[in-house]
């Protein structure tokens, strides 16, 4: 417990320091001596609450917003966020195939049309069992078949449990796609056709942007969001609270409005993992579709409407 506290404090401190460092100057590079001198104290103080719970005073001139996206070096992106073990719980009883999660994911990762890292499957176990909608994304397995087969370490497993892709290294052999039993990997067969400013960005495994021709992409659990203490896009986009996201070490998952003890939730609602018998040890858990909020047919209607709209727009 103590250990967890320290690591959390470290995390917050690092964030604060980074903020201060970035706040030192208007210049691009805050690390030069000249940059430091240029900031002159304004004399106007503001009160802040430190991580230790103390109220401290800081000169206003030193306060600058933390840049929206800090650059995470490749080595750091491969290591992961220390002390974390990310986990997701998907409550199948709440899903009606609204696809808001998918739209948010596609939008935030600038995926070309037709590319879905997040798929919502109509599932039916046997001929007389009831059908249900099953959102599926990368399972971030603890025994990931894709990582095992990658010949160049382009897809890798981090200490916080995430399986990410370094698409500056990927050779496009697609062995990982053949190995993944969940078909969660998507290949950029052609040029992804991104807006110029997006395409010009430097790729980071944590943002998975921009996608590049001839390489593999997939759901990344949005580590750029979790680094900022925010939820992955699919979780926050879902109006029905289907997705719960959290840290296994804290034993807590949340969908933004409700928060549960992960272990209680899994025990009380009989959580399970997809194709657990394969031994892949996924980090995504499912709650069975009991006492559903919506009938299955509503999702079918939704699907048909979306298809019709797509056909109209393509014409």
């Amino acid at each position: 417990m103590n250990n967890q506290n320290t690591s959390r404090r470290d995390f917050l401190l690092t964030g604060l320091m980074a903020g201060l460092a970035a706040g030192c100057s208007d210049k691009k590079d805050p690390f030069t001596a000249a940059a430091e001198q240029e900031t002159v104290a304004s004399g106007e103080k503001v009160k802040l609450l430190s991580v230790d719970g103390e109220v401290v005073e800081v000169d206003k001139a030193f306060l600058k917003p933390v840049p929206e996206t800090q650059h995470i070096f490749n080595k750091e992106a491969r290591r992961g966020i220390p002390g974390k073990k990310f986990v997701m719980v998907i409550d199948l009883s709440r899903c009606k195939n609204l696809k808001k999660c998918q739209q948010a994911c596609n939008h935030m990762h600038h995926l070309p049309s037709g590319f879905n890292w997040l798929k919502i499957y109509p599932m039916q176990e046997a001929s007389h069992t009831a059908p249900y909608w099953q959102p599926t994304l990368c399972m971030h397995c603890d025994n990931p078949p894709c990582v095992k087969v990658c010949p160049v370490d382009a897809t890798f497993k981090r200490e916080d449990g995430l399986v990410l892709i370094d698409n500056d290294r990927c050779i496009g052999c697609r062995f990982c796609m053949a190995a993944c039993p969940y078909n969660s990997r998507v290949f950029n067969w052609g040029d992804p056709e991104l807006p110029a400013d997006i395409a010009a960005q430097k790729y980071s495994p944590e943002t998975s942007v921009p996608q590049k021709k001839g390489t593999v992409g997939k759901c990344d659990f949005c580590p750029d969001m979790t680094r900022r203490g925010m939820l992955p896009h699919c979780v926050s986009a879902c109006p029905n609270g289907v997705y719960f996201f959290g840290d296994m070490n804290e034993d807590t998952v949340t969908n933004g409005s409700e928060t549960f003890r992960f272990s209680d939730l899994i025990r009380d609602k009989a959580g399970y993992r997809l194709m657990d018998d394969l031994g892949t040890k996924p980090s995504v858990y499912y709650l069975p579709p009991v006492n559903r909020n919506f009938p299955f047919e509503e999702g079918v209607k939704m699907e048909e409407e979306m298809q019709a709209e797509k056909n109209k727009s393509s014409k």
């Binding site: 010949p151 160049v152 496009g172």
Partner: peptide, 25 residues
């Protein structure tokens, strides 16, 4: 068949012995 044939040398620079592709190479 490679999506990125110009990165062929990655097999030797970053090659990981646990991948059957490296065994094949």
């Amino acid at each position: 068949d490679m999506g990125r044939p110009e990165r062929f040398m990655n097999l030797f620079i970053y090659g990981r012995l646990q991948s059957p592709i490296i065994w094949d190479v």
